[in-house]
Structure formats: C-alpha cells, structure tokens
Simulated scan of single mutants.
Amino acid sequence: MKKLLFLLLLNYSLFADTLPNRITTTITSVDTNNVQVATSVPQGTSGIVIHSYGNKLSAITHLIVSTGDKQATIYPYQELGDTKLPNIKSSVEKGDKVIFGNFYSNLLLIAPNEESYRKATQKFKRNFIHPDIYAMDLILNGEHKISFDNLKAFAQKNQIGLVLITTKENIMVLDPISSKYLATLPPITTLNTTAISPFYARFEQISNGFFGTESNQKFLEYYQGIGQIQ
C-alpha cells in the first residue's frame, strides 16, 4: 500500500512539473484563417505550418496558434521576426504539416534571484537563454519594463519557445508568441529572500521602480512588477 501511494505521489509530482512539449500533427480542414488539425492541442500553443512542394522541397509558410481542442488560427510567418525577409505566399492546405511548440526546448526564465534561477535551470533540462541578454535587448529598444510585446519580439529574434515567470505562489509558463499562459508549476523553494531583480548585471536603464531598489531589496517589489506584465 505504501509503495502504491509513493508511486502515485511520484507520478503526480512528475506531471505537475512537466513543461509543454512539441506536438506534430497535420491540417485536416481549412476555413480562411481558421483550420482544424488532427490532434487536440492546448489553447495558446503556438507553432509553424510546413508546406511540401514535392521533390523533397518544403518550407515554413505560416504561424499557427491553437484555440483549443483541434481548432487553430493561422497568421503570416516572418522568419526570426525580420520584416526585411520576403513572405512565402503559399496558402495553407489540407495535409500540411504542423509543429506546435517548435522552439519549446528554448526557455527564458524570469526569477527573483540567482539562486532561484540556478535551481530552476537544474530542474528543467532545457536550453536557457540568460535573462541579461533579454535585459540588453530592452535597453537597446528603449524599453523600461517587461511586457508581452517585448517578450514576443525577443522570442522571435532568439527562437525562444517558452517563458517561465516566477511568481510568489508558482511558476507561470508563458507562450510568448501567443501571449497565453499554458501551465502553472510548483514554485522553486530557496533560502535566499533578499534579491529583487531577474537581471543579474547592473543595468541602470532598467527601471528600479519596477523591481525595487538596492536600498530596499524586498520580494514585494519584484512580485508587484511581475504582476504588472501585460
């Protein structure tokens, strides 16, 4: 009985900590910008549509976002967010291949301190893009705080599939392309309760008021700032 209970608890723990994964499927019907796919996909999951031209030639033609169940919406695809590149004009067709979560192996983590960041990167075995790179991108673009828009732009440029945002109660899993939260995971427990910023280099251009100040290093400012992401 104890062994069975342990296995049930272990399975629950593994399930609770699981990040969204890649889903490969095909388009079964098309109605303008709305399509149906062969596999049920969680709402908010983004991906790409790949059209085959024959003779082993294929190309990404559209961005796709699941609206729940087997339904999805398609959008123009611009490689790496570079508007100077030409768009492929192919229409979406029945039988086109779809890869949802094509970059879900690449993550950006927003955490309140370096200890939380280290523990999370050890826990989730994926490729992490350091948040200081994101901070530099904010500065170069004249941004002063985290938003869904600049997360999406940064994700497109750096092939990031998921953003993990540490809140006071849990870790929110965001698809930055759809700006939809896909999952809620248990928080990372740490002993360090003094840091207040997800960026570890000193960036004066990033608003101190958004994450607190060095003279007032409280988690409250960090969590208030995270709660204002929109």
Rank of each mutant, 00 (worst) to 15 (best):
L151P: 00
Y223K: 03
G68T: 05
D132L: 05
N55R: 14
H62K: 12
H62D: 02
S178M: 05
I171P: 00
L4S: 12
K180N: 14
T26K: 08
P42S: 10
S91K: 12
V65P: 00
A201Y: 10
K152Y: 08
D96S: 07
F203A: 03
E114A: 12
T45F: 02
L151Q: 05
T45L: 02
H62G: 02
N192H: 13
N113F: 04
P186N: 10
T24C: 09
L162V: 04
G68R: 03
A16L: 12
P42R: 04
L19S: 01
N150H: 07
K180F: 10
L108M: 06
S46G: 13
S116N: 11
S40R: 13
V65G: 00
N158S: 07
P86G: 05
G225R: 00
L109R: 01
G44C: 07
L9T: 09
N33T: 14
L10S: 08
N55H: 15
N141S: 11
G209P: 07
S40C: 11
V35W: 01
Q71T: 06
S197M: 00
G101H: 02
D175H: 03
F154S: 03
I99V: 10
L164M: 08
T83S: 15
L182D: 00
Q156W: 04
R202F: 07
Y75F: 14
G161I: 01
G54F: 03
T190D: 06
E79R: 14
Q71N: 11
